[in-house]
Simulated scan of single mutants.
Amino acid sequence: MENSRETGSTNDGDASPRNANYYDIDDILVEGELVPVVFYKSANGVKVDPSAEKDSVEEGAKVELPFWLAQELYLRQAVSLSIPTCFNQNTRREIQADAACVDLKSRCPYFYEFGCKIAPLVGDRTIGKMLLSTFQMRYKEILTKAHTTAYAPASKSLAVLTKEETSLHEAARSSMAAFKKWRIGGPRFQRASVLGRKRKSTE
């Protein structure tokens, strides 16, 4: 089947939401995340399993497909979607128990963005609430780690952060390092050049 990125408009001026992130490498990786689907009907010329002998999928077949393909088939009413395992009840229970320690990266490097993409398709409104509460619970810990490791190697605990959380951590870390550098080096304030000019007499 054709990649949805190949079927989009090739007009460079096309700024539609569908093509807004066409060349964004992170968005491409997000859409490569696997989604469980069930085929409503058989499909010929499709090979989702490299080890399969036939290039076809039987009606009722349960397989995992990249998000971009699963979304296209869903919009064509060819498959039904299920909630990916990274958003299942086990993950939610672990987050409720101790959100800061949950290894979200191993479950999905783009946990938040993928969740925002899949939620409206599977019709589960609780995913959005879960994403928000998860981020709120982990936010303070991310900033704390950023401030305490500004001049030290990243700790192993940072390995559990998602791509989005890592970007936030690095931004906070750089900000803190710049602030400390400002505090210990050079004058804090500089006299504006305009203040050094003599006022001309009007007489």
Rank of each mutant, 00 (worst) to 15 (best):
T134V: 04
L29E: 12
K54T: 14
A150H: 07
E31N: 14
L81T: 10
F135D: 01
G60Q: 04
Y40N: 09
L168Q: 10
C101S: 13
A172F: 03
R92A: 15
A61F: 00
N90Y: 02
Q71F: 06
K180G: 08
T7D: 05
E53A: 10
K41Y: 04
A177S: 08
T134A: 09
N21D: 07
K140M: 10
G60I: 05
T91A: 09
T7H: 09
R191H: 03
N88G: 14
K129E: 15
R199A: 05
Q190E: 14
K145D: 13
T91L: 11
K145T: 12
H169N: 02
V37W: 05
A178P: 00
L158I: 06
I83V: 10
A61N: 01
K156R: 08
E113G: 01
A119P: 03
K47C: 02
G128W: 12
S133C: 11
A172M: 02
V102P: 07
T134L: 00
Y40R: 07
R5V: 01
V63G: 00
M137K: 13
L121N: 02
E165Q: 03
A152V: 01
L34G: 10
S4E: 08
E6G: 06
G115D: 06
R18K: 11
I95L: 15
T7N: 09
W182G: 03
S174T: 09
S155N: 03
A178V: 01
F67H: 13
K117L: 13
E165Y: 02
K156N: 06
L34S: 11
F39N: 02
I83H: 00
E94A: 15
A52M: 08
P187L: 13
E53S: 08
L34T: 12
V122F: 06
E59P: 02
A100E: 14
V63E: 06
T144Q: 05
A15M: 13
G196E: 08
G13P: 00
G60L: 04
G196L: 08
A154P: 00
A15K: 14
T166W: 09
Q89I: 13
K200P: 03
T144P: 00
V63T: 05
A146H: 03
N11K: 02
L65T: 01
T134N: 01
K156P: 00
K105I: 00
L131R: 06
L34W: 09
K117H: 07
T148K: 10
I118L: 06
T134E: 04
L73S: 00
E165I: 01
A146S: 14
T85I: 04
T126D: 14
V30M: 08
E58T: 11
Q190T: 11
C116S: 08
K200L: 11
S51E: 13
A192I: 02
K163S: 15
N19D: 15
E72F: 03
V102Y: 04
L73N: 01
P66R: 14
V160K: 12
A97P: 00
Q96G: 03
H147I: 11
T91V: 15
K117C: 05
V30G: 05
M137Q: 15
E94F: 10
L131F: 13
A172L: 01
A100M: 11
S193H: 03
E59M: 11
K198V: 12
